[in-house]
Simulated scan of single mutants.
Amino acid sequence: MTTTLEPRALPTAAELRRPASAPGVWRACAARSKVELRAFFRNKQSLVFTLMFPVILLLVFGSIFSGKVAGTDTDLKQVFMAGIVAAGVMSTAFSGLAINIAIERDTGTVRRLAMTPMPKSAYFIGKLVRVIVTTALEAVLLIGLALVAFGLPLPGTPERWSTLLWDLALGTVACAMAGAAYSALIPNSRSAAAIVTPVFMVLQFISGVFFPFGQLPAWMQTVAAFFPVKWMAQGFRSVFLPDSFTAVEPAGNWELGHIALVLAAWSLAGLALTALTFRWRGHRVR
């Protein structure tokens, strides 16, 4: 007796266009996140530059600064310690991510991933998971070192711990979205550091990281107010500095609601810009 095998029906065009199921998307995101984290921690150069650069700044400037901030009883070191946490977030979430995307685009990694069945959203979620993990590690390193070496006080109330967490979370997402969008301006991996680093350094100087924000020229304060680093640093000052320090803050208070609003707006704006400008191919060489 002969058994006849019926040919399997080919998928229709509608079936091919059907988006992947939710479990499939989550598996792809989880797999991509593991790849991102493994690649970051195996790349010693990236690990040292991204994580250790703010630590080096903390040790150098923390050893230089001394005295009280004019008009307050607050040690200048404590002001700097609060600001350097914001610089650490920017280092991992903005600079590190923008340079990493530029390298992957230049080497063709981004283009090859776009040609695979992997949902494109998995690429960005993997990057965001990598940024969240590395930023949390950076924050723990900086706060721990500042606590041990320079006597930075830990938050004294549950409200301040809560502010630390949401400021860190919103600041990380805002800088990550800005970094992903900014990567569109980088033509190749060779120029990535030269294009990203000046922005990273200038924003630190005008955002109250190295100097008390209220002592900066008015025009610098105005420019800095358009970017998330200033607001992150202000949020971290509200966590680690006494409330009496608001006497020298430009607004006379911590503006926590304004900080959350600005960082959320930067997160949404960065996401929109990334969606509009992200290139899955590198610049064509002529």
Rank of each mutant, 00 (worst) to 15 (best):
W26R: 15
R8P: 03
P11R: 04
F40Y: 00
P23W: 00
T12S: 10
R27Y: 06
P23L: 00
C29K: 09
R38T: 13
T4K: 01
P23Q: 04
A30F: 11
P23E: 03
R8G: 00
W26Y: 07
T2G: 05
F40M: 02
N43E: 02
L10K: 08
S21L: 14
A28V: 11
F40N: 00
T12Q: 01
L5R: 08
A28N: 08
L10M: 10
E36T: 08
R27I: 09
A20V: 13
P11V: 05
A20W: 07
R27E: 12
G24T: 14
P19Y: 12
V25D: 09
N43H: 07
A9H: 04
A31H: 11
S21R: 15
R27S: 13
W26P: 06
A9T: 10
V25G: 07
T2I: 12
P19K: 15
T4L: 07
P23I: 01
A39E: 01
T12M: 02
A31N: 13
T4M: 00
A22M: 15
A9S: 02
K34H: 09
E15Q: 15
L5E: 06
A13R: 09
W26Q: 13
P23G: 10
V25T: 09
P7G: 08
F40C: 00
L10V: 07
A13G: 12
K34W: 10
C29M: 09
T2N: 04
A28Q: 08
R18P: 03
A31C: 11
T4Q: 02
E15V: 14
R27M: 11
A30P: 08
